[in-house]
Structures are given as structure tokens and as C-alpha cells.
Amino acid sequence: MLAVGTLSVGWTDDPTLTTFAVVAAGLFGLLVGSFLNVVVHRVPRGLSVVRPPSACPGCGAPVRPRDNVPVLSWLLLRGRCRDCGEPISGRYPLVETATGLAFAGVVAAVLLEGPTPWVVPALLYLAAVSIALTLIDVDVHRLPDAIVLPSYPVLFVLLAVASAGSGDWPALLRAALGAGAGFGCFLLLVLVYPAGMGFGDVKLAGVLGMVLGWYGWGALVLGLFLGFLLGGVVGLAIVALGRGTGKTKIPFGPYMVVGAWLAVGFAAPVVDAYLRASGLR
């Protein structure tokens, strides 16, 4: 049994229940991934994600409900529109599959390793936002306010639920401070070197800092550092390989997201190893 503060989490005592939760999360993730395809296409263009209904980009025919089943419909249609036969990008089922795997992985990791199942909704939301923002940043080199800014109140509420459920209220205070720290650190970087990243990255740093702060100070420092490090290494590699110059702009958001998730998953053992090596533990 996994003990979290004063809360005993018994989900891991029942493999059947855990397996059901992971599978259900994966199926839910497939549905969310289908919606994310709409978000990634429409939000950067300032379009509604609700209306009009999805349609074939080639002939404009509305997508039938039976052709809107994640992954399966694409496979049955062999990646083509039912009406005009126009190829449908394989990116659609890939996004759906990636989201399903991400949701299943989050639930499995939390139920088996902790810290508390109450944090699952916050992490699932962050996973969905991470996928959408990564794809949008790669496509148009922007991190839309329409996604980033609402994430502040949504994640704060979800993390407040996690703190209430686990009885760990100091974690919520760390989350608030982490949001400020992430925003402030990246704002300073933009002011010092404006060509290095955009203000969208600053706002995203606050969102990621909130979640990392909830996990702990070690996760906050490691996650923000890894995001900056990964982006810097890729930038240098592009220059070294002759694919660009020091002025070449690269989407920085994806590396920030990867750094944050690495910290969520591995900050505890990394920080523990560092403290032991430095003689502080």
C-alpha cells in the first residue's frame, strides 16, 4: 500500500482495478487526442474548436460520426476521405495514439509510484496541453494565449484538489511560488537575450513551474533547467550541423515541456542522488 501523508492509497493493492483505470485512461486519451487534432489546427488560426463540425480539407464534406472514431476510422478508411478519396494525414491517428499512451502512462505511473491519485486530473490536463502546445509551436512557432493563459487557473484549481485530497497544503503554496519563479526566470532570460525565446515561452514557464513547484523545489529547479538545457543543446546542434545560424529561431516550447515531464518523473531520485553525493544526506 502506498502511503501519502495521512492518506492511504490502496489502488495498487488491486491489480485488476489498476489495470482497468489505466485502460480507461488510455481510451479517454484517444478521444482527447481526437479533439486535440482540432485544437492544433484551429486555435492558431483563430477559429472556433466547436463550430463548424470537422470536414475533409479536400472536398469539404462533413466527417460522419462513424468516421470519427479515433485511430480505428482512419485505419478502416485506409487514410482517405470516404467522399473524395483525398489522403488524410497520418498525423491524426498518431496524435490520438500518443495522447492515449500519455494518459495511460500518467495513470499507471501515479497509481503505482505516487505521489497521490488526486494529482491525476492535473497531470492529464497538463499532458493534453503539452501535446497541443508542442505541435502548435512546431507548426507556427507560437504558443497561443488561448491555451496557455487558461491553464493557470485550471491547473491551480486541479492542484488545489490534489492538495486537499492528500492533505499536503504546502504543495499548493509551492505551486503558486513555482509559477512565479518559472515566469520570472524566463522573463529575465528574455530581457537579457530577447532573440533567444519569445514571451509565449515565458508564460508557458509559469504554467510548468506551477506543476513542478507542487512536486517540490528539486523538481522545479530540475525541470526549468532541463528545458533550457535541451533547447540550448538543440540550438547549438543546428548551428554545428549547418542547418542554421545563431539567429535561426527554433520552437522552444517542446523542450520546456520535455524538461518538465522528465523532472516530474525523475526529480526525486536525481535530487536524492545529488544530496548523497554532496554529503548533504
Rank of each mutant, 00 (worst) to 15 (best):
V138L: 15
G198L: 02
L159V: 07
V221K: 02
F228H: 11
F183H: 14
I238D: 09
I136A: 06
M210E: 12
L189K: 10
W169S: 04
Y152P: 12
P194N: 12
G196P: 13
A179F: 06
F186L: 14
T245F: 15
K247N: 09
R142C: 02
L222D: 05
F199H: 09
P170Y: 07
D145Q: 10
A237F: 09
L230R: 15
G206V: 04
L191K: 14
V161W: 13
S163C: 03
G232T: 02
G165V: 11
K203W: 00
D201E: 05
T245I: 10
L229C: 02
M210F: 11
A181H: 10
G246E: 02
L149M: 15
L155D: 11
K247C: 02
L241W: 12
G246P: 12
D137L: 04
G196S: 15
V148S: 12
L159P: 03
F183I: 07
S151A: 13
W217Y: 03
G198I: 03
A195V: 07
V202T: 02
F183M: 10
L208W: 05
G165M: 00
M197F: 10
D137P: 11
S163P: 03
D201V: 00
F156H: 06
D201S: 01
G235P: 14
A176C: 07
A146C: 06
L155Y: 10
G235A: 03
L220H: 11
G206D: 07
G178S: 04
V233A: 03
V239N: 07
L204S: 14
L224G: 08
G178Q: 02
V140S: 06
L135D: 04
L149A: 14
P144Q: 00
G223H: 07
L236I: 10
G218F: 08
L149F: 12
I238L: 15
I136L: 07
L149H: 13
A162M: 03
L212D: 06
D168P: 04
L177Q: 04
G242R: 03
G242I: 01
G231N: 04
T134D: 08
G180W: 07
L212P: 12
A237H: 00
G182F: 01
G200I: 03
V140D: 09
K203C: 01
A171S: 14
A162Q: 00
L155E: 09
I136Q: 04
L189C: 11
W217I: 15
L220A: 13
